[in-house]
Nucleic acid binder design. Sequence first.
DNA 1: TTATTTAATTGCAATATTACGATTAATATT
DNA 2: AATATTAATCGTAATATTGCAATTAAATAA
Lengths: 110, 110
Amino acid sequence: MGLTKSEIFTDTQNDIASFAKAFAHPARVAILQQLFKMDSCYCGNLVDEIGLAQPTISQHLKELRNLGLIKGNVEGTSVCYCIDKENWQKMKEVLMLFLDQDTQTKDECC
Amino acid sequence: MGLTKSEIFTDTQNDIASFAKAFAHPARVAILQQLFKMDSCYCGNLVDEIGLAQPTISQHLKELRNLGLIKGNVEGTSVCYCIDKENWQKMKEVLMLFLDQDTQTKDECC
DNA sequence: TTATTTAATTGCAATATTACGATTAATATT
DNA sequence: AATATTAATCGTAATATTGCAATTAAATAA
């Protein structure tokens, strides 16, 4: 079918999945790393750095923007992108809690 | 095209994306949470707990197994699944390093 | 006004993912 | 041996994702 039955899962489970989906493609990982590394974070820079076409990068940026992980600032014909630190922190809290489950449990069952 | 150009990305970027993909579906998030919560982690329990068909759960389990995050132990006709703590820890290190990037950088550019 | 530059959008092709019915495989039970 | 139980696999349908050429939109420069 190809359609996730999101209604049978909790909000938290869907949130974790949504955030994880942001990192589930190496291009988006690369984009985020660049945004953390660079001071100048123009869209064109990302196209140059990462070897993908401009529409492809633009599409990935849109997904990250929709999730709230980045924000874009229009400067003339250019757009300067950067990490939305506040939302990044929120996302981190949700994911960390999930990743840290192993510290709160005893030993293996099998 | 629908085909990720993994060859243009670094191993780390591809690793992060692969791990994130494991959590990029609420069913797999739910499975992992159950495995952490339960002592008895039989495949049938997961089918009952999560409202998806047995082949669907089996398929999700396979993906988690291929990534090394869980391991299954055959007990008669049943299979007992549990978290592979060692690999979970390794995965955590990779993802944490990525998520913690915000602590290592200065303020926003825009 | 007419380029030029930069990035978003549209349209489309190809591959990936999700889900499940039907079947199969393997073990246990009668 | 025949049946029951449990989970994997196969096949298939439907939706999602990835990628890019072509185009559009918006602002700047000539």
